[in-house]
Design a binder for these strands. Structure first.
Length: 225
DNA sequence: AAATGAGGCAACCGCTATCGG
DNA sequence: GCCGATAGCGGTTGCCTCATT
């Protein structure tokens, strides 16, 4: 339902948009993204707002390189659960599913290529990133076993994961343990923010009346790594 | 110093599940 | 029980940056 005369904005977020989004998320909580998007005046979809918040603006997010522990955890959990990125992400506090997904893609693609080249240095018909990215690169270990491609032995992702997991001496963390030990990111629930809804009028004025940006600690979000 | 390619990351898209009326 | 709205998830794409030639 978008009888809008104006197009929704797409593409990279500006600092102003970020600050506005932060204000309104604090106001409304992490719910009603569609409503939030409209009320805030951001010319973005609720979906886009949510994604921006979850993947970048959330104060509890950790940015920067994965630690070796995190890498091991990702490997282990992916071996267990496959491409359940959101599930895996819940076990890595401060990391998002998108981040882990991206990490896995690049990390594993590189490892796979390394392994292929080291095992079969003469195989020049190595799949390019584009071809491998479409469906096979991240697919869960369904097609196990070694694939024969035009006489060339190719490792399946299953095997690759297996070898990597073995080589890296897995952390040994079970799913259950993880579920207990790694609660989701602490975040204000809609109910928790309901009280603020009653103050929306005032706070809305404050927000639209432009609270000082420094009050929002935007430096936390736009930190340079 | 410039051109090219690869890698990394942010954002979008489509689908599915869940919830409320 | 049905339907529409909303939220969440996984896959994919496009852009930017850095390294290499």
């Amino acid at each position: 339902m978008a009888p809008k005369t104006e197009e929704m904005r797409k593409g990279p977020w500006t600092e102003q948009e970020d600050s506005l989004l932060v204000r309104f998320v604090r106001l409304f909580g992490e719910r009603r993204w569609d409503c939030l998007a409209k009320v805030s005046g951001l010319n973005r979809t609720g979906k886009s707002c949510r994604l921006r918040w979850v993947n970048y603006l959330h104060p509890d997010l950790r940015h920067g390189r994965m630690t070796p522990e995190e890498e091991h955890l990702v490997l282990d959990l992916h071996a267990k659960w496959g491409n359940r990125w959101s599930r895996i992400a819940r076990c890595l506090p401060g990391r998002t599913d998108n981040e882990i997904k991206n990490y896995w893609r690049t990390h594993m693609r590189r490892k796979a290529q390394e392994r292929k080249t080291s095992a079969y240095p003469s195989s020049s018909s190595s799949s390019s990133s584009s071809s491998s990215s479409s469906s096979s690169s991240c697919s869960p270990p369904a097609a196990a076993g070694v694939v024969q491609s035009e006489g060339v032995k190719v490792y399946s992702m299953d095997e690759i994961w297996d070898e990597i997991a073995a080589a890296d001496s897995v952390t040994g963390l079970t799913a259950e343990e993880c579920g207990v030990a790694c609660p989701p990111l602490p975040c204000p629930k809609w109910e928790d923010c309901s009280e603020s809804l009653w103050k929306v009028d005032d706070e809305f004025k404050m927000a639209t009346g432009l609270l000082p940006v420094d009050d929002l600690m935007l430096s936390d979000f736009h930190h340079s790594d």
